[in-house]
Structure formats: structure tokens, C-alpha cells
């Protein structure tokens, strides 16, 4: 049973007779209770996709269902069942934390007490500031409040549009742990994020770029399907090393990644061939080892195809 099904969705925006495609023939399905990540850089089409699924935007082509309901015809029923947290903080900044929560509970015809168990873990962290205006909260607190408000009517599907953008590393980690606990409650969660390292937290991810899906799979499978040989190299002069590596005839692609440069070799080239070439150039403190591909490497590779 699928919670969200998207079939051949396309959407383009027309500004001054110039048409920019935002989504090109997108199809995927999300299982019930799955934590599904949509990962891609800014402008990939993540927000447009979320707005279509939350019935705020009409797609040009294709169909999509949420909990078996069509996003075009049955939007009223969908709005009762989904929780949406937009990328931009969209609560009333001039109302207090408690007033915001109460407000969103009442417009969904429920009360905070009724669903308190669901948001308890998250809400207790901001409860000491219940009488503070939402606009005066820190970034991480705002995210927690927004998540509480999105959950207050006990939705079956939760759409989180870039919830961790602009949030510090510790809060990001906390946030993902909160999502894992929500998943245990059986809520289907769709999260979009531009951060590749967050992919590992998801059950499955869709890598999206320029409105097209590059790959859909579990993070482990995506990494495992990385077919090329990847090396990690470093020396004391990283910039010269990168230029040298890029010039090499054995190398398909090279880019900095942390303290190493990741080097993707061409199909018939071997690590030894590159090593010989680099050693001949006498780089101080040269270190070459086999690289462990991450989602980011997979993404970079998929983008090139």
C-alpha cells in the first residue's frame, strides 16, 4: 500500500513568455510509514513538488495521489489529513508559541490536549517559552514549533520542505531523531533537503536535479551501485594537486571533498597508473587511498550522465 503516488508529473513556470520547467515527468511512490527523502540542490524542483502534493499548486501534467486521494479533485479531504511545514517559517510571528499551537489545533477542529502525546517529545523542548512570540524564537526553536503545528491534527502524511536548512548541526541531528520517532508512530514522512549527508537518515531517497529524478533507492543501494573506481588523494598543496589530477588522462572527474580530493578514474584506468603519474610530479606528503563513496559522490556521478 502506497501513501503517496506520483505519476508523470510535470510543471513549468512561465515568466514573460519564457518557460522554465520546474518538474519534468516525475514518478515515484512512497510506502506507508516510510521516511522518504527528496534530495537535490536549490532550484531542483523540491518545493514545487511539495506544493503540488499538498494541493497548493496545480501540476501541468500527470496525476498524484495522497493516501489514495487525487490531489486535484479530492483536495479538501487531503488537506484534513496532511501536515505541511513550508521551507520558510510560516507561523504567526506576532502570536505566542502557545497561541500558534492552539490556533492550528482549532482550525483543524481538534485540541492540543487531544493529540498532545504525538507532539509531546518535541513540544516539551519549547514549552518553557510558551508565552514568547513566535518571531522571537531561535531558528531551531522555530522549526520545533512549526513541526508541532504541522503535527497537531495527527496527520497521516507529513511533508517537510527543507526543515533543516539554516539550522545548526546539533539541532539538525536532533530534528532527524524526532523524525525517526514520528516514523515509529506510523506517519509517512516526506522530507526534502539540499544536504547529501542527511540521505543516510532516510529509508529511501530520490535524488533530484533540474526537475528530473536521477535515482530512487535506499541510501545503501545507491552507494553500492557506484560502479566507478574512486580514490581519495591529498598532499600539502591541495590546489596544485587538484589541477594536476584534473589534467591527468586517467581521470574522469575530480573535486574536493573534506580534507581529500575525490578522484573518479576512467573505465580502464587503474589506481597504480595515477599513482605513478602523481609520484613523478613529486608532491610533498602525497597520500593516495581507495575512497569510500558517499551519496554525494553518487550524486556528482549521476549528474554527469
Amino acid at each position: 500500500m502506497y501513501s503517496v503516488e506520483v505519476q508523470h508529473i510535470s510543471k513549468s513556470y512561465t515568466v514573460k513568455k519564457q518557460t522554465t520547467p520546474a518538474l519534468k515527468d516525475i514518478s515515484f511512490s512512497v510506502k506507508k510509514g516510510e521516511l522518504f527523502g527528496i534530495i537535490g540542490p536549490d532550484g531542483a524542483g523540491k518545493t514545487s513538488l511539495f506544493r503540488i502534493l499538498t494541493t497548493l499548486l496545480l501540476a501541468d501534467e500527470g496525476t498524484a495521489t495522497v493516501e489514495g486521494m487525487n490531489v486535484v479533485n479530492e483536495y479538501k479531504a487531503i488537506r484534513k489529513q496532511v501536515g505541511y511545514m513550508p521551507g520558510r517559517f510560516s507561523l504567526y510571528q506576532d502570536l505566542t508559541v502557545k497561541e500558534n499551537l492552539d490556533f492550528f489545533a482549532t482550525i483543524f477542529n481538534t485540541t492540543v490536549d487531544e493529540n498532545y502525546d504525538l507532539i509531546k517529545d518535541i513540544y516539551v523542548q519549547i514549552e518553557p517559552f510558551a508565552d514568547r512570540k513566535a518571531g522571537k524564537l531561535s531558528g531551531g526553536m522555530k522549526q520545533k514549533l512549526a513541526l508541532s503545528c504541522a503535527l497537531i491534527h495527527r496527520p497521516t502524511v507529513l511533508f517537510l520542505d527543507e526543515p533543516t536548512t539554516g539550522v545548526d548541526a546539533v539541532s539538525r541531528k536532533e530534528f532527524w531523531e524526532m523524525l525517526k520517532r514520528l516514523k515509529e508512530q506510523g506517519i509517512t514522512i516526506l522530507v526534502s533537503t539540499p544536504y547529501m549527508d542527511e540521505a543516510e537518515m532516510c529509508d529511501r531517497v530520490a535524488l533530484i536535479q533540474n526537475g528530473s529524478i536521477l535515482s530512487i533507492d535506499t541510501p545503501q543501494q545507491i552507494v553500492a551501485s557506484f560502479a566507478e573506481t574512486m580514490l581519495a588523494v591529498r598532499s600539502t598543496n591541495m590546489l596544485q594537486l587538484l589541477n594536476k589530477v584534473r589534467e591527468s588522462s586517467f581521470v574522469e572527474n575530480a573535486y574536493p571533498s573534506g580534507i581529500y580530493h575525490h578522484v573518479i578514474l576512467k573505465q580502464h584506468a587503474t589506481a597504480e597508473q595515477l599513482e605513478q603519474e602523481l609520484q613523478a610530479a613529486t608532491f610533498a606528503g602525497l597520500e593516495i587511498k581507495k575512497g569510500q563513496p558517499t551519496i554525494e559522490d553518487c550524486f556528482m556521478q549521476l549528474m554527469r550522465i
Binding site: 497548493l56 479538501k76 488537506r79 505541511y84 513550508p86 510560516s90 482550525i107
Partner: peptide
């Protein structure tokens, strides 16, 4: 402008 209408629009209001 503030974006709150987006949050209202997904509700059954």
C-alpha cells in the same frame, strides 16, 4: 508576504 497564508491554505479552513 510573511508566508502564513501558505500554512492556512493547507488547512481545511
Amino acid at each position: 508576504e510573511i508566508g502564513t497564508i501558505e500554512q492556512i491554505n493547507v488547512t481545511p479552513v
